[in-house]
Nucleic acid binder design. Structure first.
Lengths: 110, 110
DNA sequence: CGGTCATATGAACCTAGGAGTATATACCTG
DNA sequence: CAGGTATATACTCCTAGGTTCATATGACCG
């Protein structure tokens, strides 16, 4: 069940990745910035590490984590077949028309 | 837990989306092509529909499902900050500088 | 109408995995 | 060496959500 997608389904893990996107950080820094228990941070980092999202570099007693690109690329590739549904500017128009069409009618179940 | 990412964490749902990427399909068609129980297909479609990944068009007693772009765009946007880690080699420099900035003092490697 | 397709919904069950607590490991400093 | 700091791991508990089985809803056709 260790799919790339399952990994990023977890909000705290996405938060961690979000931090690391701007710059590498130690466990303690992540802990403080996200105000989440250290043990939780460590566990999420482990999952992220084993899935290849991040890698750790030891700095004395610290571990400094940083992003690795591969799993993100995988998500990007998964997205490819769906890009045709919005990537061209034809779709901007389409979306516009869609929105117009929605006012009179109603859509969706909930 | 209704995040876009939680939705696509489920392998069967990704399979359904994969089918719909090429063309719209009825529930029965999905059921056959994926060889998965109808009730399961219906439930996954419900989740996908409520999250905006697909929409249904009634065709007599059938429901024909097709892709909607918005949630995919959301994933694409989430990916944006991470693109610099692989999209060009300019970013290799950027990453390097980033690392330097984080370590003004003595650094040790082992 | 009655039957039968096509799809949706409900309920019970089961498992994965996140959270919390406690503790282990490793490294630094005095 | 002792004591503190930084991070990892083990264990238990708990809940979200996927699967299955049974049935409901609704549209078509004879």
């Amino acid at each position: 069940m260790e799919s790339t997608f399952a990994i990023i389904a977890e909000p705290n893990r996405r938060a961690i990745l979000g931090l690391l996107a701007s710059s590498e950080r130690s466990v303690g820094e992540i802990e403080q910035e996200l105000r989440m228990p250290q043990t939780s941070v460590s566990k999420h980092l482990r999952v992220l590490r084993e899935a290849g999202f991040v890698e750790a570099r030891p700095d004395a007693q610290r571990r400094v984590y940083r992003i690795r690109p591969e799993p993100f690329m995988e998500v990007d590739e998964w997205l490819a077949p769906f890009r045709r549904f919005w990537s061209s500017h034809v779709d901007a128009l389409e979306r516009h028309l869609d929105r117009m069409a929605k006012a009179p009618k109603n859509r969706r179940t909930r």
